[in-house]
Design a protein around this nucleic acid. Structure first.
Lengths: 132, 132, 132, 132
DNA sequence: GTGGTCTAGACCACC
DNA sequence: GTGGTCTAGACCACG
């Protein structure tokens, strides 16, 4: 696992041996940074090549992540100057806050199910987080 | 019995009518090549497909051999570039309890990173779990 | 320019020296086949590898086209069995017929502007098409 | 899309979100104006700066378009007085008329293939143009 | 120096 | 066999 602070506004933590494809981890972390408003419309993302060097991965992997977010309308790219957070309105009329809460519930549900599968009760979970 | 020199450093001699499964023969021959230092940490092994063609056997058989050696930490594979001799020190066998604790830490770490990415602090996490 | 009939329902005409990226030409031709109902929800597309051989291009180029259409919800893929036209409802409540008409107007507008730029009047355009 | 009449003899219609680079759109529209004889050898083009202001784009973009046309011998610039349509003979012994006809065939071919892909027959195409 | 396109070829996961 | 992920490295287009 490597954690790299690329920018005041976004830190990438990648884990190649995680099962989740690297490009999906990048997509998720950009999306979460937008949902928590650390990244705002118009903000510039790190360049593909700079990020590839920082994260020690192939530039094409980052291009794939940026590319998917561009198709989804989350990012816009201007060749020659960089990649930016889009200010496009989403088609679904769900607010950032609503999406964020939905994501939090998803993460929480997955977490509790996995720890229950490993035989932990709620008290032990609370204890673990307190000590983390 | 067929003997095939695949590489300057390793020669495979397989005998299908031997009783010993082919994938075991491959494993043994790689291990012995390492013990005798004909293969050293960082050396690249032949690709699964190339070796399958050379040895005239099914690629899955080689994949099984490589896979087992990877589980044991003898080999590491880097998707996209090949399979290499690991430089990892052999580990002491891990107890069930140790494995469980490691899994718990993994789940916990991923959970906390994701919620942090979504802008939550530790107190909010504890509160969420309490209310769950 | 190469034209390849891949399937009873779709024919690809690619022109590498066209300026338009190959993967975009593929995307457009799949979209148009759907809009004109030669391809319907559930239909299976050619496999990436087979199409790559037919069109004499790299499989990754086709994967990129299919991938973008999958992100947009136009295609769905089932690893191990192939890539299919999605039956997902679009978010925008525009019918296939409406989209098709819009595309026709776009193509028509571009065409007439270019031929006007080349100094043709409407009568000459009609004559050209008649003779084509 | 913006359409700007810059001069009695040439009107630019640029569309930034078109895929075609802006400098190519400019080149094409100048070439087509020459092929249709709205611009003739010796005619003066708008200055780079004036055109940049009119079209609200970066002067470098226009410089690139003019520059490429100059390399091809279509334009000549006289420092201090402006940029003009060249009277140089084209190297290929193709007449203006031949080039124009070739371009018309290209545009026509692309148009008809796209509308066929959208499921239109020749009669429908003729009808569409008539009504345009 | 920015991103975009394309090729070639590796292993992986699934049926 | 299917598609998916990743690497490596080519050349191009744009500012």
């Amino acid at each position: 696992m490597s954690t790299v602070k690329v920018d005041p506004n976004i830190t990438f933590s990648l884990d190649a041996a995680n099962g989740t494809p690297i490009y999906r981890q990048i997509i998720q972390q950009i999306e979460y940074a937008i949902l928590s408003e650390r990244l705002k419309p118009g903000d510039r993302l790190p360049t593909i090549r700079a990020l590839a060097v920082e994260l020690k991965i192939n530039p094409n992997t980052i291009a794939k992540a940026y590319g998917e977010l561009e198709i989804r309308g989350v990012l816009v790219t201007q060749v020659g100057s960089g990649t930016f957070i889009s200010n496009k309105k989403p088609e679904a009329p769900e607010s950032i806050e609503e999406i964020r809460n939905r994501k939090i519930q998803e993460v929480l549900g997955r977490f509790m199910r996995e720890l229950e599968d490993l035989g932990l009760g709620k008290d032990e979970m609370l204890e673990l987080i307190r000590k983390f």
